[in-house]
């Protein structure tokens, strides 16, 4: 790497990642689904940010890399919301909920 920048304290970040891992494992023990969602996926987002920013040096990267990744995530969003109606909406004359009655699963197998 030709650019020069201060290296983050990698071991300190690792400690933080382990603390977050412990919280995400302990979360479901409280048996509150809403809280589990936060401790599971909220913390996963924080952990991924810590890894990307510090270990992958994303915070030192040029804007074009950020744009590249944001574009990829936006296109993923298009895919998600484009296919969501097909999976989530099962009402109407033309809909056959073949997963519920297992007819399409039997066909595939």
């Amino acid at each position: 790497m030709s650019e020069t920048h201060e290296h983050p304290n990698y071991v300190k970040i690792w400690y933080w990642l382990l603390v977050l891992l412990a919280i995400s494992v302990a979360g479901p023990m409280l048996e509150v689904p809403a809280l589990t969602l936060i401790t599971a996926f909220g913390i996963a987002i924080i952990k991924s940010f810590l890894v990307a920013a510090n270990y992958m040096h994303l915070k030192f990267e040029k804007k074009i890399i950020w744009l590249l990744l944001i574009l990829a995530l936006c296109l993923l969003g298009v895919f998600f919301f484009g296919t969501a109606p097909d999976i989530m909406m099962t009402e109407g004359d033309q809909w056959i909920d073949c997963i519920a009655d297992k007819s399409c699963i039997e066909q595939r197998l």
Binding site: S24, V25, G27, T36, A44, S48, V51, Y55, H57
Partner: peptide
């Protein structure tokens, strides 16, 4: 290293998906 961190990132999301969010 960048590639390996990405593999780590993917697992960071697979872990809650398959192991923690059991509801």
């Amino acid at each position: 290293g960048i590639y390996w961190h990405f593999v780590d990132l993917v697992w960071i999301f697979l872990f809650p998906l398959f192991y923690i969010a059991n509801f």
